[in-house]
């Protein structure tokens, strides 16, 4: 259960204050599928980062599973990210030195799993995403779609309740993008909360709920209705 109450975030650039988020309130139920849309610079990524505990709001309260996250220290926040949240980025962000399997393994290592269990889980995850045969390849030896699948495998390996995806198809061709969306939606059907930033109205329409952001505010917040299709 995600609950944002009056969240504000502003950046100081020289003498100018940029208000990336202005008093945003938002609640997302477990298992929800939320699309975040809006023009460039409207604060979508900032919102996602705050939900993902990568960034702290200047004002407001953020409750995650009834817990006030603004009180948590760095360690505790890291633990929350580790166990409850999975990130998927537009630019994949795989560690170039490590193989696909090792990239997927990273969160398990951070959480202190033992080697046998790690191996098992990584293998399963890669198989589930259809890239088991690429497990020993380094990112530069993979296609964009394959890279994003590795990133998704990494995001879901800890079985988090929430997946945050910031333009996951932004760097992919249409077909690969489709496959990635299918995978993410599948995970959503299995009960994971999916919050996805996208510029693509068609993709946005697939979500069960859609918010439109403009200039740091939520302009509209619509549950998906039949007419929109």
């Amino acid at each position: 259960m995600i609950e944002l109450q009056g969240i504000s975030r502003k950046f100081q650039v020289g003498n100018e204050a940029v208000h990336a988020l202005r008093s945003v309130s938002l609640g997302v139920k477990p298992g929800g599928y939320l699309a975040v849309m809006g023009p460039s610079g409207s604060g979508k990524s900032t919102l996602l980062n705050i939900i993902g505990l990568l960034d702290r709001p200047d004002q407001g309260v953020y409750l995650l599973d009834e817990q006030n996250t603004t009180d948590l220290n760095d360690r505790q926040q890291a633990a929350v990210r580790r166990h409850k949240i999975g990130f998927v980025f537009q630019f994949f962000h795989l560690v170039p030195r490590l193989t696909a399997a090792e990239n997927v393994e990273l969160p398990l290592i951070l959480a202190g799993f033992d080697a046998d269990e790690r191996k098992q889980r990584v293998q399963n995850a890669l198989s589930a995403l259809g890239i088991a045969d690429r497990s020993r390849h380094r990112p530069d030896q993979l296609s964009g779609g394959q890279r994003q699948r590795v990133a998704i495998a990494r995001a879901t390996i800890m079985r988090p309740g929430i997946i945050l995806a910031d333009e996951p198809t932004g760097n992919l061709d249409r077909a690969s993008g489709r496959e990635v969306i299918d995978i993410l939606e599948n995970l959503n059907k299995q009960g994971m909360t999916l919050i996805m930033v996208t510029h693509d109205p068609e993709l946005g329409r697939r979500a069960s709920r859609r918010i439109q952001m403009i200039d740091g505010r939520i302009q509209s917040d619509k549950a998906q209705t039949h007419e929109d299709i």
Binding site: G52, L54, D74, R75, A78, A79, R82, G86, H93, L110
Partner: peptide
């Protein structure tokens, strides 16, 4: 830098 950011995103604490 980006690698470190990523490590943090997937749950590494500053200490780690």
């Amino acid at each position: 830098t980006t690698e470190i950011g990523l490590m943090k995103a997937i749950g590494a604490s500053g200490g780690q």
